[in-house]
Write a protein that binds this DNA or RNA. Sequence first.
DNA 1: ACACCTTCGTTCGAATTTGAACAACAGGAG
DNA 2: CTCCTGTTGTTCAAATTCGAACGAAGGTGT
Lengths: 158, 158
Amino acid sequence: MSSLNEPRWLDPDEMAAWRGFVVASNLLNRRLERQLKEDSGLSHQQYEILVHLSAAPGDSLRMTELADRLITSKSGLTYQVTQLERAGLVARRSCPSDVRGVIAELTDQGREMLRQAAPGHVALVRELLIDVLTREQLAVLAEGLGRVSARLRLDETP
Amino acid sequence: MSSLNEPRWLDPDEMAAWRGFVVASNLLNRRLERQLKEDSGLSHQQYEILVHLSAAPGDSLRMTELADRLITSKSGLTYQVTQLERAGLVARRSCPSDVRGVIAELTDQGREMLRQAAPGHVALVRELLIDVLTREQLAVLAEGLGRVSARLRLDETP
DNA sequence: ACACCTTCGTTCGAATTTGAACAACAGGAG
DNA sequence: CTCCTGTTGTTCAAATTCGAACGAAGGTGT
């Protein structure tokens, strides 16, 4: 009756996929972190903040919305935005439609920093991930992990 | 002449794969972290230490070897092993063949903790990742990310 | 207008992570 | 044996992260 009490462990194929995911993710993060820090003095998190802001209309986003996209805690974002503000890359504005709201906005200096940092970062992502995989593998990654992400998003906000 | 100075940006498919990877990885880590902490009081990192030790011959590994497998810094491992030692889940032994060496060994209590924590963790990994993907997608993940990991490992130790 | 529950962003303390510096040792070339 | 170079694990200060608690404000129903 082991199937009743015992969990369904991962078979070798499943384990390989899971380990591959964890290992690749850790190694990749570590590598990108190092490269960004050396190249531009930015952490990966700070870089992502700039990216998300520059992709948003008006180069600005509300704190909560930004935290959701970055998948980080609100307090963590407060800290990092403060750092970026000190560096002159981001500015805080108050929200017109909500007194409580705070809008983080990309400064000209922030835009310039992103313009300078992006090429090296993208090149490394390409070298370490994109160009290592085939077109088909990329498609599977996008579709599969997209569905995984969607499932996780739903679980978070019921 | 933009192709000479401009980097090759990611096209929509490539971007989807990259974003999917980052988002899924962050959401998954966050979720697993929460579950492990609530369920067993362990961090994901601590859990992985126990897993790697229990998978090693003699339920023990040298610190450096363990740090490599966990993909973490040596100092980070020192800290976490100290925590686990205080909790009685891991013990430090000295290495017979190398006076400098320190061997981390799983205690009976650590083995028991792992036995108790593993089912819930595996079930969640299955629910959030494995069972969301098809057999073919899992195979692609394993093969592709395995190659990505291998490439990254080589880059680290030239 | 009123109470009530939710949302917003920040602050706080505790936990964790990292890289650099360090002392002690290993291993080989000469 | 004796330098010399590379490893090993730890310590240290600094940076980052998180969750809980908080004050302030939005939104709703009555």
